[in-house]
Write a protein that binds this DNA or RNA. Sequence first.
DNA 1: CTGAAAGCGCTTACAG
DNA 2: CTGAAAGCGCTTACAG
Lengths: 360, 360
Amino acid sequence: MVEKRVTGRDVARAAGVTTATVSNVLNGKRNVGEATRERVLAAVRKLGYLPDQNGRSLRQRNGHAIGVVVGKSLSNSRYGRTVEGMLQEASDRGYRLSLCRNRIMPNGMRDYLAAYYQCNIDGVIFMSHDTEGPDSESLQTVIDGNIPFVALDCQIPSTKYSAVDFDYRGGAADATCNALSYGHKRLLYIRPSVNNAQETLREEGVRQACAEANATENLIVIDVDVQIQLDDEFADTRLEMSEDPTHSYAFYLDTTFRKLLSGRIRPGDAIVCSWPGWSAIIRSAFPLPNVMFTDLASESLSMSGTDAFCVMPNAQAGKVCVDTLVSLIEGNAPQSHLLPIRCFDVHRKQIVNERPTVES
Amino acid sequence: MVEKRVTGRDVARAAGVTTATVSNVLNGKRNVGEATRERVLAAVRKLGYLPDQNGRSLRQRNGHAIGVVVGKSLSNSRYGRTVEGMLQEASDRGYRLSLCRNRIMPNGMRDYLAAYYQCNIDGVIFMSHDTEGPDSESLQTVIDGNIPFVALDCQIPSTKYSAVDFDYRGGAADATCNALSYGHKRLLYIRPSVNNAQETLREEGVRQACAEANATENLIVIDVDVQIQLDDEFADTRLEMSEDPTHSYAFYLDTTFRKLLSGRIRPGDAIVCSWPGWSAIIRSAFPLPNVMFTDLASESLSMSGTDAFCVMPNAQAGKVCVDTLVSLIEGNAPQSHLLPIRCFDVHRKQIVNERPTVES
DNA sequence: CTGAAAGCGCTTACAG
DNA sequence: CTGAAAGCGCTTACAG
């Protein structure tokens, strides 16, 4: 596309040196005389030389790029935020971010593994979608091939690759503890009827906090069928494409909550919801006095519809993933990280860092 | 990392041919005898050969990758959705997606231009953030260098590069027309006090629809100061990092709306909001009867707090961008696209495709 | 401290 | 229809 590419040879000629010296000046691998160095740098500036990364990668046997498996989930702002954190950290560390899916290629291999073997990427960050991790066959390939691999939010610890996870249990416990501190009689915990590690841990956290506050008998757990969202990869694509707008997630939830919760919420209840935005929908459907809402996760507009919510450290998770992966690529041992989830109380305007004293 | 890389030479040896033949079989560039072809493919399968893309790119002078400038905006679900559309289309077309920012490098060049000159990417899709496009110097570089370039949502048409834009005017007109069709006395249009193409077009659409319905005297335009969000790149990072949670966007908006709109909303009003989620916040702050809300944009949970909203064709925009860019890379002329924005009415449960008849 | 040369893995004219 | 060879642009031992 460009008429005349500037190459290392052009710079060498202009500076009166060889391409080896140009390379050594730019990469600082070995000592170069000050005068020569200056001449080379001047030529680089003058010609606007930017080394071709393909030649570099071919020779060095690494691509200076990280593959990020985003699955079907990038429209979820949570994952977007995570990728943003990754992007910042990766560019600071001289790595590019290359997006992958989790699709099976014609040869039966997942696309992100193929990208690795094709030397497009030096390692993989696998972002799970609702703690759904990589398939076991791919995981075995990762282990056998010693592929630098970070599993984000997959809840599958291993000594063979790195893992970054969220402390769902602790976050839920803190949030529940905060809710109980307001002295409401009952605690309704509304969770999706899906069985994954995330929801199991959250429920454990809720139960644990209730037990510690001697409020186990006040806890009512309500399961919500969210099948529609989990089954249909293209639910909101259909909305977007105007093909079947009534299947929208929020519309479905609103309808579902109205049916499911009718007559079950009472004034004076404390309500803890597993997923972001649920508080606002339920509050708007059941405008009862003296009900305290908490979401165990948050989206951008969460604050307007709830009294407290957990803040997912998504950007931080992205950074930690990149750090951990680069460490693996450099030959270090795998690490595991468990990131804390903080609960923010809208009225008290503060993070509930430690569990507040219960006033029951 | 991998102990023993499988190379084209290994395949050639196993099949009793030269590397040239292996390449020709895999790329289908020239005719290869059926028997030879079978032998090569068998060897490829047996050895699990995946060609190194660096060697390929170095020789072919292109990287089979597209750069996407995501700026500071990927945590906005709208842009995540767009990237999702790009990813699907790009992988279908054999291109990788490489994330770029819009940062100035030490040499004074934007990172996405550097990536192009380093042959990391074959072209650029520039996703604007609130119709904020590339700086004019970079744009000149793009034009002078004949760099394949697609400006998404930048509202800066040119014959030198491609542009994909949204029909904000048409969407706003349709939505306003739909709101007027309910026969409310007044129409309050609540828009951010920012001067960009997007907001200008939306207001034009609103005014145009009012004029066509002879309702211009019923229109009241209210500007909202959203300075906090536009000024502070890290507003929600601070929230996430627990550094200053009270500056959250939603919290700020809630407070602002309560002050700004106090006493100005009356039962029986129709309210049109420029940005997604505003309807829900305002409705919850002013629970008045018989008020009809419309958002001129949508997020995932929009439906629960509003009566009608515009649906941004984000995934489609992503696909169109990739198609357009690939066409440019292949040497075709630049194109311009204007994507329609549909308005969805929650009660009528349908897309307002054509403007409904006004019943005033 | 610097140069001449080899080679990373691929594709593509050039011969036959 | 297939092979032998050149070369994409870089980095890195190897000499000096």
